[in-house]
Design a protein around this nucleic acid. Sequence first.
DNA 1: GTACAGGTTCTAGTCGCTGGAAGGTCAAGG
DNA 2: CCTTGACCTTCCAGCGACTAGAACCTGTAC
Lengths: 154, 154
Amino acid sequence: MNIGELGRLTGVSTKAIRYYEEIGVLKTPERSPNGYRTYGPETVDRLRFVKDAQLTGLTLGEITTILDQRGRGESTCEHVIGLLEHHLLELDARIETLEKTRSKLRVIAKRSRELDPSDCVDPNRCQMIAPLTEFEQTDQAALKNQPREHAHSH
Amino acid sequence: MNIGELGRLTGVSTKAIRYYEEIGVLKTPERSPNGYRTYGPETVDRLRFVKDAQLTGLTLGEITTILDQRGRGESTCEHVIGLLEHHLLELDARIETLEKTRSKLRVIAKRSRELDPSDCVDPNRCQMIAPLTEFEQTDQAALKNQPREHAHSH
DNA sequence: GTACAGGTTCTAGTCGCTGGAAGGTCAAGG
DNA sequence: CCTTGACCTTCCAGCGACTAGAACCTGTAC
């Protein structure tokens, strides 16, 4: 199977597949005489697993550690349970801060529709966007400690 | 005022300040004879505004467009209202998908504690991480269209 | 031949920074 | 005068998970 078919079967772009190879998520595949990558059907499983694991919040680095351990025939169960629980905690924290941000943003958006544009004069700020004094102090440390979310947007 | 003091007053690192200058969020400052950047007090306002705007979910690019328009004396109100409402919609969508992910992850984590490690044999996957057949089909398009979240962690 | 769909490699960009190297500047203290 | 230390300068690399594009090769159909 060539890279294109593998991509079609798994829903992963060929660019991404080559990238996974580069960072060690996928092993370097055989090449046919013309230099094309050729994959066996087990790679479909592996790639699908990578996708599943990503959807549960694991990073490609973590996924690689799991796959490497399994490849060496070691048990990964404790390791994986640890990762999952860690991600659950992170997810909880993240949702909470996002919800806080949302309620602040709602107040700001509402207030902004009531402001008079002619009051907006400072060239270094916009009156709509200002800290909410009616809200408790923004916990910046919490807001800033959010784990990264990457954009796979098209 | 030098860059260090500006950073202390605003809580923004000197690295970040230089980066903001590079990408046009801050204008190129005056330099004292020794080459140090020197800032007037209005820059404190501007930087604080940048922070506030970031906390409402605006990107540095969007913040720059606001500041540029204001600098040209134009009204930014409609523009900003549009940005804010757009971010509110995004935030809603994001929280929703994160909550879905969380419930799935919870089920997976729970299930993983009941599995027998000796059943885990495939070198290309880990039995704990698998699509949840008991859940509705994962909406990958929705999950993949999440905007980026960056980590400024400590 | 020539179009077209595959494949290959490489570089660069995304976002919002952080870290580090390698050095210049300035004031205080020995 | 020299050193220490805090500050400042520049530039380069890296994070994560890719995507976009250039420039080129391969294979099949017409």
